[in-house]
Design a protein around this nucleic acid. Structure first.
Lengths: 207, 207, 207, 207
DNA sequence: TATGAATGAGTCTTCATTCAT
DNA sequence: AATGAATGAAGACTCATTCAT
């Protein structure tokens, strides 16, 4: 009878999600009341429960689908060409992609870190996400034979280190400073150079 | 500042803080009820409010003093000898120290990131802490002329990247895997090598 | 009063009643939600309100018609032949009939007692039903000159006692133990003998 | 410091129970809101939960203790002298005692029948109570060799019949008509005679 | 007539905080 | 200083009922 975008329900569901993401980000998981979400979304309290079983269900459903998207986006990237025309190419591409994805999903990722993880009810989402990401990164390392002499544990640590690095910078620039996509190139370069460019003048260049 | 041990009620104050740190870590900020804290501390509910204005006040006071300690510990380290007997020495020492401090304060740091930060009421503590840490790290960089050609912004990004790197690894090993101090050496080495050792076998120059 | 089967929507009305009786019995009045009733009946929520003003209206209408039927069934019995071919005949017949009717209406009677009566909104139905039944029984007593020297109040008490006796046994056997029609003969005999057969062996005169 | 009746807490607990019994009786279990109970008891909503885990907990605790008392009271009676100076003596005593107990506990028993049993959450209390009572009565029958030739099932039926008889009469006189203890003698006599005195004039006496 | 999405008043329960003792 | 009973505001969730289509 009508086009899809006007389908009853789907529209409301979207509006709830949008409102929730906004409020979760601003006020945290516990700070956001269902009553605020529905007010923001312009509907009655009861309507919320037509689309979500509970407040936690809303969070889980938003977070999970979003994080899956992120993991997929990065996974696709890892499939890219394997020839290293130049040292650091994979690293560059991966970090760049990660930052871009983070940017586009900055709300949920920030939420996950700062809000989701805070609530024991929801911790499993965070744990699962990081596990998946770390595994993905390790796989990429192995595929391209990066860190050739590392043990599994060292590789795992490295993976988590990368995630932490990217996430912290992304959070502070995208969320707290409100930077946009235009900063990504510079961020990527810096993140690649983090441990490389650290030597004082005289011993500079490539380490 | 005062003879703490002689103050009659300070014992209680300490007991509250201890109980709170234990419970905050286990159950999160919102999951921890004042009633649980006082039960754990072995005193009456009303007693809590003789020592703290509110639950938030307790958290702030615990977090702030704790984070100041951390910052101080790291600052002292940065003051250490300036001669680089070997490339990466400052980096090594700093990261090692940071991990040690993190380990000893893993409760509060973890809380701050994963619990505290989730609550807008408390976000300023987190923001302030990271700002302080980043500034400290940047100062160290400048002092030792690391990253010589970097702009201020690049230096700041690098500082945040280091924090994120260390924190993420520390969280996953100390908190989630329950690792102890014995892991710190290995963690430090890996964290230093994050961007350096990544090259595939044939081109492995920098290790 | 009307040609029910030809009324287009009456089918739906019947389906609602059937579904409601099933669910009321299983889950009680408050435990049964309108949403469950319509799901069970296979129609939309709104349809319910085309046939019944409210949930209470549904219950009243179901209960009243059902109880009237019961009262009528028993009344007809009371009109039966007046010759007592044998002592206890009327009593036997009445109780037997009552149990049979109870069995066929066990859902609604049980509901009325144990579910309906719990809700003040519905108490009047119960009160009215018991009043009617008691009056009927008293009339029968008088007709057959049973309890010849009793005052009106004693007769009334006796009537209620009979009702309670029959109902309690019927409830426990038909509803809780799931007994069927085959138990009715035995139940009737026992109910007749309740106060008669109680004497110990040696003094057993009246059996 | 003070006499028991003024002990903090116990007083409040009592007040809650009193208020609850009054309201449960008037408005049913579902009709009675916790907010009404505390208003009636003159305290804040939160106070309720210092004394009872939930509304259901309140009902269970009131009902269980009350029903235990009843069962005990009747059990004690069953222990009485075993010599039957006269036919029907035990029966008379038992019914008389049952009615007295019922009268003193008329609120809770009525509640159990009309309210408690209506809520599936609470049905087990009712079932357990009736089971206990029936067992008790059967034991008494056996002890005094009443109904000598009955099978177990017939004895069980008889027990339930007695309960139903007593309860129904008690409910209608004590609760609905507001009769008092003065009616108990008459009620007892009638209840004993229910199946005995039914014969028409000419074939009367004790059969 | 039929639908089922939408409503919103109403319920139980929690918990940080207060206060009389 | 210490207690712990009392408070009451606030929140998540339910469900009978309505109404636009």
């Amino acid at each position: 009878m009508e086009d899809v975008s006007a389908m009853p329900g789907n529209d409301k569901r979207e509006r709830i999600i949008e409102a929730a993401m906004k409020l979760f980000e601003e006020q945290g998981y516990h700070g956001t009341k269902v009553s605020n979400i529905v007010k923001e979304a312009g509907m009655a309290q009861g309507t919320f429960y037509l689309y979500f079983k509970s407040k936690e269900d809303l969070f889980r459903s938003v977070a999970e689908s979003c994080l899956d998207e992120i993991a997929m986006a990065l996974a696709v990237n890892a499939e890219g060409e394997s020839v290293l025309s130049q040292e650091n190419t994979i690293l560059y591409r991966t970090i760049h992609k990660a930052l871009t994805v983070y940017y586009h999903n900055r709300m949920i990722v920030s939420m996950l870190n700062r809000i989701g993880a805070a609530s024991p009810e929801i911790q499993d989402i965070s744990r699962h996400f990081y596990g998946k990401m770390a595994a993905l990164i390790q796989a990429t390392f192995r595929k391209f034979k990066a860190y050739p002499h590392y043990t599994d544990q060292q590789l795992e640590m490295t993976a988590y280190a990368k995630i932490g690095m990217v996430e912290m910078v992304a959070y502070h620039w995208f969320i707290e400073k409100g930077a946009g996509l235009e900063s990504i190139d510079e961020m990527t370069k810096v993140l690649i150079g983090v441990n490389i460019n650290c030597l004082p003048e005289e011993g500079a260049s490539g380490q």
